[in-house]
Design a protein around this nucleic acid. Structure first.
Lengths: 161, 161
DNA sequence: ATATAATGGATATTACAGATCCATAATAAA
DNA sequence: TTTATTATGGATCTGTAATATCCATTATAT
């Protein structure tokens, strides 16, 4: 399990937008060269962020992207949910709803089958709660907050401790 | 981003082992039919759990698996780390070490490239801390604990609230 | 010796992230 | 109005990791 590269790109792109002066559009060329990502790939990511209302986009000359709201109003959770999707991290196999399509004569042992755990499954309860812990933290941390962190070193660039 | 099916199977398999009487080996047939997973696939998972010291395995007649230590000493984090790997959930693109192989003349804008964020990257700091929140929760919750939860309904089976 | 049961290697299959290309639409400036 | 610029969305390709199966081997109780 890993966060996708898209999420890394998206988060960093937003950091760059947050750094740029308000009102100025940042083009995909600038973003992609700053991040070392291809324009075409990063475009897709920016489109998603726009569709979800995190950034605004203007086409044409002098167009580009800017934050749709203050950096202090954009949480890491917002970004993660757009780019990773909103499904739960954990599922109790086979979609967690239908009780397994096929399971004919299962060989010898006709045990009580214990699959098809729904919302009440104790395993799922723990896993969901664990996810919740992470999400809560992500929700409490905004782009602005991270930007401030960066400020104490060299605004968002290297800063190896 | 999703937990793998392997993790779901592994966790549930351990729940079953924890339920079975101590000293009795549970074979792969029994496990797989209870969980609705194929024997061959579940075998791989059990092998990993064994290699990591979470279960013991005995080959031959009356063989099978049992917990290698008390269910109260096996945390969800133990299981997740075996089956999902121990890498961090978040990486700042391209492996986070080498400074990007190729990046010849990047077109027009010779900006200061802002990639290759190491450990000090403010984005990574937030993401790592978020992961830490989840891991801490997983570490605090053991198989035994989940089993107790299940007990209050119908030991590990349905229990839709 | 035999049946049972886990192991590990090899290999197939599938799904999805990663990545690119192109035709289209929108916009500013000439 | 034309032109250059810039984002958009569809289609598609690729690579890789998760899923899944098969089989030969090893270990063990009877």
């Amino acid at each position: 399990m890993q966060f996708s590269k898209s999420t890394a790109y998206g988060l960093h792109a937003l950091m760059l937008l947050a750094k740029s002066e308000r009102g100025r559009n940042v083009g995909i060329k600038e973003l992609s060269s700053s991040l070392g990502a291809s324009e075409s790939y990063l475009s897709k990511i920016m489109s998603k962020l726009r569709q979800d209302g995190l950034v605004r986009a203007v086409t044409g000359v002098n167009g580009g992207y800017e934050l749709a709201r203050a950096a202090s109003e954009i949480t890491f959770l917002d970004v993660v949910q757009v780019l990773e999707g909103r499904q739960h991290l954990y599922e109790c196999f086979h979609g967690s709803d239908h009780p397994l399509p096929a399971l004919e004569a299962a060989g010898d042992e006709p045990e009580t089958p214990e699959f098809a755990f729904g919302e009440g499954c104790p395993v799922k309860q723990v896993m969901d709660a664990a996810e919740q812990q992470m999400n809560r933290y992500l929700q409490q941390h905004t782009i602005q907050l991270a930007l401030n962190q960066a400020g104490s070193c060299d605004a968002h660039t290297a800063c190896k401790k």
